[in-house]
Nucleic acid binder design. Structure first.
Lengths: 200, 200
DNA sequence: CACAAACTTGAACGATCACTCAAAAAAGGA
DNA sequence: TCCTTTTTTGAGTGATCGTTCAAGTTTGTG
């Protein structure tokens, strides 16, 4: 038939996530992208359509990876609430494993705060993803409630939003140049706050 | 002598704050700045030196205004802790007064998450300002502790960082397209958390 | 080996970027 | 009114922006 593509789409998207997560949307040029993905304009535009198209797919790839990270921690935890506490604390030691994250702050939040109204499609995409994550947290809390881990009067949807806000704040604060012990203490304080919602 | 300048430096800086706060650093062009400040390149560069120079002054102007806002709420409150709670809740209803803020999220945090290593001077400037705010929060907490509002074993520096993180999270979350009642509930939850640190 | 189909390449596009500077305009003092 | 001093203007700088596309390269098939 014909020539086969020399690049791997998933690998290219992983590189795009790392690049965009690190540099943000507007400060990443097509030259940066060409170098990071080792692809030339023709291939890039044939594959992803545009810079914003590539960014959009990178956002989805990032969200998928974030979801897997959460599930992995949740599965390895003795209880739902314990899993949520571990998840909170997981953002306090990102330097431990070899695969360094390009930034402390969440790529979705960086995008939410960076992209302005002219790129409304990207904004609403982030909004949908964040709502999905919020919903996932809410489901976990409902499950914890059903298991008797949470008090009966806890509003799961409201607590889910509080949790998401804590994570957003923690990861954004961690962008500051502060000692890692202070970040760990912050994560501990946030984990302790969940105690006020636990049964008994 | 000679011709006098036709613009007011403080008014120009206020316009710059609004513009940069709304659009961010990289997505704001000199054309945007010319229009918003009603100044032409020659005057702009004679006055502020460069785009980053103007942004730097805008950051300081923003920080000064933010400090005044905090002081105003603190002065009008019956106790230090009550003032902090009001301050938290103040971020939940920014639509009330006529002077609309151009964004929900803090301009310092938007900058912290947007600007990358190539503009190290701006990054470190934001870092210094955030550390100053953290210190101001810590001083307020020490004062509350001396007044018997806080338990004796509370680590004020640690609680100050937790408070700052809450504010960061709350304001970033508010960038999402969610009902204002949910933001208000978030602020209430955060204010309630301070109860765990209060004496008696 | 030749052909056709798909992919890769890199030069080039007009637009816009941050920034410069010579010329025009305006103000106060004489 | 004229002169000096300062500010304002806006055209123009080279560089870079996102994007296009024709030409070249590589593949599988007959």
């Amino acid at each position: 038939m014909a020539r086969t593509a020399s690049f791997n789409r998933q690998i290219a998207l992983d590189s795009a996530v790392e690049l965009f997560w690190s540099r943000g949307y507007y400060a990443t040029s097509m030259k940066h992208i060409e170098n990071a993905l080792d692809m030339r304009p023709g291939s890039l535009y044939a594959t992803f359509g545009s810079k914003s198209g590539l960014f959009s797919e990178a956002l989805d790839a990032y969200a998928a990876r974030a979801g897997e990270d959460f599930d992995r921690i949740a599965e390895g935890s003795p209880s739902v609430i314990d899993g949520l506490k571990r998840y909170l604390r997981s953002f306090a030691q990102p330097c431990s494993d070899a695969a360094q994250a390009p930034a402390q702050a969440c790529m979705l939040i960086k995008t939410l705060l960076e992209v302005n109204a002219e790129d409304a499609a990207l904004r609403s995409q982030v909004d949908v993803i964040l709502a999905t994550i919020e919903h996932k947290l809410c489901e976990a809390l409902e499950q914890a409630k059903a298991a008797g881990e949470l008090r009966g009067d806890v509003e799961c949807a409201r607590l889910a939003r509080l949790l998401q806000t804590q994570i957003i704040g923690l990861r954004a604060f961690a962008e500051r140049n502060v000692p890692s012990e202070q970040i760990a203490a912050l994560a501990d304080d946030m984990a302790s706050m969940l105690d006020a919602y636990q049964a008994n």
